[in-house]
Structures are given as C-alpha cells and as structure tokens.
Nucleic acid binder design. Structure first.
Lengths: 370, 370
DNA sequence: TTGAAAGCGCTAACAG
DNA sequence: CTGTTAGCGCTTTCAA
C-alpha cells in the first residue's frame, strides 16, 4: 500500500483530459461544468494533492514564511509564535521555524537556509543588525520585524532627548504607519545617527510608553534609585528607561545580561549586591524578571518590602509568584498575528509598521519605598 | 540591485562548464582539481545557493521535517521544540512548525499541509488518534511521536493490571528499544485491546515511574485522598496514577480539562470545591499545575498546609511559586532532540523508541496531611 | 573527467 | 473550453 502519490498527470489520464485542464479546474479556472465535476471526482478518488514543490518551482515563488525567535523557552516568544501560526494557518501558509538563541551568526545561517528553501519571507525578532538583514533584503527577502529592531538600529535617546509628539499614549495603535525609521520617530526617539536604517516594517510594542508608565508608577511610590535589568534586544527599552528617569542616569543601575537564564541570574544577583541601595528594578523581559525574583530571594530581599519589581511581559506565572508580579503587559499573540498579516499583505500595498499598546498591570510586587 | 538569484546554469556558463559538472562539484562528486576550483570560485563569486526546490523536486523527496505541538505557550512544548530545532539545525534541516491546539482536526489539516509541501517526516505530540495518523503513515510519512501516544492507543491499565518487568526503574533509558506497541509493555501497561496499534517510534518520558514516585511520596506524607488533574494527552499518566493508587480508585478524584487555561482553571476549581476532603493533587502538566495553584489560592486553600501539590513538568517558574512547587521533571529538550535524532536516523536502521527518565524534584509544595 | 539530455510536478502561453 | 508545450532548477543516467 506504499503507492506513489498521484500526480496531476495521473488525474488527467484517469479523467481523460489534459493536465492543463486539471490545473485549471483545481485552481478555480474556467471549465465546463461537466468536465470540472469529472476532474474533481477523479482527483478526490485518487486523493490527489497538488505538489507545492512543482508549483513553487514553476512559479519561482514559494509559499510559506520563516519565523525567527530567540528562544521558544521564553513564554513571550511562545505567544508570539502562536500568533504567527494562527494567521499563517488561516492563510494556508506553512511556517518554517528558527530559534536564533540571540546569536547573529545562527540567525545569518538560518537566513541562508531559508534562501535555499526558496522561502523569501520572514518574520523575525532580530538578533543581528544590518550585517545580517541588509544582505537578506538585498537577496530579495521580504522581512517584517517583531518585538524589536535590529541591534544597530538607532535606539539611544541621548541625554536630553526631546519627547515626541505622541508621548503619553500609543494612540497610533492600529492605524499602522511607518517603516523602521518612521517608527523611531513615532516612538519619540531621535532618528538614526547612522546613514540609512533598514527599510523594513515592524510590529513593536510601545515600549516607550510602557517603561515610562512603570517608572512613573515607581516614582509615585517614592522610589528614586530605580534599576533597569535588560537583555539582548532591549535597546529600545533601556533608551526609554533612560529617558523616563531623566538625566543624569546612574549608570550602575543599568545592567545587561546575555540571553541565558544563568546570565540573567548573575546579572540580577550582581546588581542587587553591588547596589544594595536600590529600591526598585524594572526588567526588560520575563526571563530577567524570573532571575530578579530568584536573586532577590537568594539574597533575602523581600519583595516588595525591600525591593519593588516591575517586569516586562505578562506571562501566566506572573500571577503565581508571591507576591504576584506587577508587569508591563504587551500583546505577544497579537504581535505575532499582526506581523504575519503585514507579511501576507506585503505584496499589495506597501506594508506599514504598527505599534501595539502596553499596559501596566499592577499586582503585588511594588510597594512604597522604605 | 534586485537581481534574480543565480542558478546552476549561471554558474555553469560563467565557469565554462556543463551544469552537470557544477552539480557534481557541489555535491562532492568527482572532478578534476582545477575544474573544481574554478567552479567553486565562480559559485562563491555569484553567491550561488542551490535551490532546494529544484533538488527536492528532482529527487522526489524533500528535506526538512514537520513538528507538531499542542501549544507553544506551554513552556514544556517550548523546551521540546528547542530540542528538535537544535538537532535539526545540526543536520541542516528546516523544520515546519504546526500548533495543533490539541485539536485532531487541525492536526489532520496540518498533516495535509505537510504532504502538499512534500515534507514527509514529522515529529508530533499527537492530538488525534489512528484516524489521523493511520492515513498519514499510509501516505508514506515517517512519523515519530513525542511526549505522548495517540489518544486511542491503549493506555488504560485496568484495575488489577500487572506490573511489567521493568517496573521500578527507567532502566532502559538510552538503550532505546521498541515501537509504540513495545513501549506499552516497557511501560508495564497491558498491550492493546484494539487490533493493531500504530507502528510508530516514540520518545516518551517514563510517566509511569514518575507518577508512581510522586504518589508514593505523597502516601509517605500521609495522604490518602489524592486527586489527579489531567488534560488532553495525559492518558498514560492517569493510567499510571490509577495503578499507583491502586483499586478501588475514587473516580471523583480523577478529573480532566481540555487544553485551555480556562478549562484547566475550571477543572481545578471544580475539583477543590466538590471534594474539599482531598489532601493532595498531582497534575498531569504544568498548565494544570498553574491552574491548581491559582484555584487553590482563590479558594483560600493554603499550599501545602491545606493541600499538597505535585506538578508534572519542571518549568522555570515552578521555583518562583511560593511555596516552590514539587515537580515531576521530564527532560523536554532532550525529548525533542532525541525525537529528531530518531527521525533523522529513520532511513538507516529501523528506529526504536526511547523512554526518558523522570525525576521527582522535591521543593515546598507538599507537606504532611493535616 | 565531462557534457547533453531527460525529466521531477506543476502552471502559463498559445493554439485549436 | 481544452490540449499541447515549454520550461522552473536541479540531479542523474548515458555517452563521449
């Protein structure tokens, strides 16, 4: 019963028509009712499935899209991926998954792999910068960034950066407008000092508003020594943090980890030990939040009595912690879905970027300064 | 600069040789040193990348593999996926991802999609049963199951089921041996009452040992009314639970949820309310564990004072809970990696299943019965 | 060692 | 409305 799959030729013969007719019928072209019916019947009977290989080769464009995330073990990227998959499925498109581990080299390799596969569209949470993505785009790929921009995209709001006109609300949510360079304006951060940024649409959360809200909240609680614990790709978030706390920023209170959980823990622990005077910390992602909770516990710091905590990402377990974590929620699933939509629509009108709203969800991990 | 990608023909012309020669050189065939060098140089210069489409079409077999998981938002499946990706990457194979939502229909659709793409190998955490997988296999797919077996695979140890010869230790870990049907023996559960189970290799955790250990541990703490909170695909785990607690099992203490978090919460909450006399619960997965913690808190049940909790899956946040959760750890990443290995090796020798060890990690969520 | 040629399954021109 | 035909980019006989 190991029979070869039926080809269009088999169907044509069995139905007594030409292959072109079969092709037409199956792709909704014109055909006499009776022919159509016969072909359909035969096709069904033979359990015929058109080979995407043949089709794609012929049409020199392959369906499907790539999806690159740093780490599927990070719940946020799981949410993002679910969003992409949902949209892709509804469009009948396969998605090729790649996990970059926040490593530009792996990412570049993955791009090469996609190219070989003939997949020329990719949604990426970028790890590398222009080095990786410039070539990819030149090679003809359509790319949409999600969650963050390439690391070498301008993200630093220098001391004294002006606030953009949109500050205060992610009012543009949904209207969608802008490419990477525009987004930086939208976001209120100054445009590139570098030559020309990648012209790629992106779906991002309104990190700036999210961070600002968190910092203000903490400030309102009396906190003055607020730290930021970031990871790879949190450039826009630190920038927003710097802006929110205002100059001069205490640089010792801004620390970065690499992508791993170990590194995150080390960074958190180091921060708490080197600056026992800090009273609050906001983390750039949930893995860092996890690390902060762990490190605080290990050092016998009580949350929120000794240290207040705001974590980026509203993951299910944030509620399980005790106290439950106050978080900056960003819509991971939506982000993925919208990115996929952008990708799918990239053919027709020029895709425009979108900035999704964040929300400060107050639970129990922040308290008044003591 | 939107140039078409170079084809083998371009390389051949530029190098002044025939396409066949280029093909040979690039796939390590024989060629005179100088020819080879020239071809290689030209190929590099043109940034030539062989089209997987062309190759696959010609060879009627496509590289790559599918990966189906129920939900990427579940950290365990994230780990599993990372494992698969790691192995696939080292083999240079692309992986096409599908999220089934524990829905057999979606799963079947995804199988169809793979078939169309010409992807004939898939690693699946199966949602459907023989209905889905029988046809897939007949259609010529190579499939490897991970984490669980199809729902209609025999998994119920009836009352009085004998213990298998391997009971007590996952001693066969690593040696790998058996197909689905064998595994059920390995696992100590009676073979199918149904005709003929799918003959598919699988990578599973030693659920039986894991559950047994947990139940014994709870028993040792004095618990007698132990509940099991399961979800889709936890058939083997309930079976093991039933066996571990021994007949007669209090059926009200065995409750199931569907895949969603809401359903999990409802089930947990319902369980606690309908049986306030229970003193311990073991959950079949981390999402259910999450639900149990939440429901307990909502009902003002203290863990572990009022109720002890053991959760399947050691996810990072288990340690963040308070008290930290005692868990049955299973190696998600390894599971994925091994499944991919099995898949890759499926060509050569007949793949054999493997049973991975579980470990009871005692933290703070269990206490003596009160 | 090398090149020419025949397809893999499909769609799109172009005739009939 | 329908069939024939020419490839898409590649590997693989089969000769030279």
């Amino acid at each position: 019963m190991e029979s070869r799959r039926a080809t269009i030729k088999d169907v044509a013969e069995a139905a007594g028509v030409g292959v072109a007719t079969v092709s037409r019928v199956l792709s909704g072209g014109s055909a006499s009712p009776e022919t159509r019916e016969r072909v359909l019947a035969v096709a069904a009977h033979l359990d015929y499935r058109p080979s995407a290989l043949g089709r794609n080769l012929r049409q020199r464009r392959t369906g499907g899209m790539g999806l690159f995330v740093p780490d599927l073990t990070d719940t946020f990227y799981g949410q993002l991926a679910e969003g992409v998959l949902a949209c892709a499925r509804s469009a009948g498109e396969p998605v090729v998954l790649g996990s970059t581990g926040d490593d530009p080299e792996q990412e570049a390799e993955l791009v090469g792999m996609l190219l070989e596969q003939g997949v020329d569209r990719v949604i990426a949470v970028p790890s590398g910068g222009t080095d990786t993505w410039g070539p990819a785009i030149k090679a003809g790929m359509t790319v949409v960034f999600a969650d963050r921009l390439p690391s070498d995209a301008p993200t630093d709001a220098g001391p004294g950066a002006r606030l953009g006109s949109l500050s205060g609300s992610p009012s543009d949510e949904g209207s969608g407008a802008a490419t990477v360079s525009d987004l930086m304006m939208l976001d209120g951060l100054p445009p590139a000092s570098r030559a020309r940024p990648l012209d790629v649409p992106a779906v991002l959360a309104d990190d700036r508003a999210g961070i600002r809200t968190a910092v203000r909240y903490l400030r309102g609680l009396g906190h003055r020594r607020i730290a930021f614990l970031g990871g790879p790709g949190h450039g826009r978030r630190v920038a927003a943090f710097r802006e929110a706390v205002g100059a001069p920023v205490d640089e010792d209170l801004v620390v970065f980890a690499t992508g791993s959980r170990d590194s995150a823990y080390a960074a958190a622990s180091g921060l708490f030990q080197s600056r026992p005077d800090l009273t609050a910390v906001v983390t750039g992602g949930n893995v860092l939040g996890e690390a902060a909770v762990l490190a605080a516990r290990e050092l016998d710091l009580r949350v929120p009595r000794d240290v207040s905590l705001v974590m980026y990402d509203d993951v299910p377990w944030a509620e399980l912690c005790s106290p439950p974590l106050t978080v900056i929620a960003q819509p991971g699933r939506d982000m993925g879905y919208r990115a996929a939509e952008l990708m799918l629509r990239a053919g027709s009108r020029r895709p425009r970027s979108v900035l999704l709203p964040t929300e400060l969800i107050v639970r129990g991990s922040c308290g008044p300064r003591h």
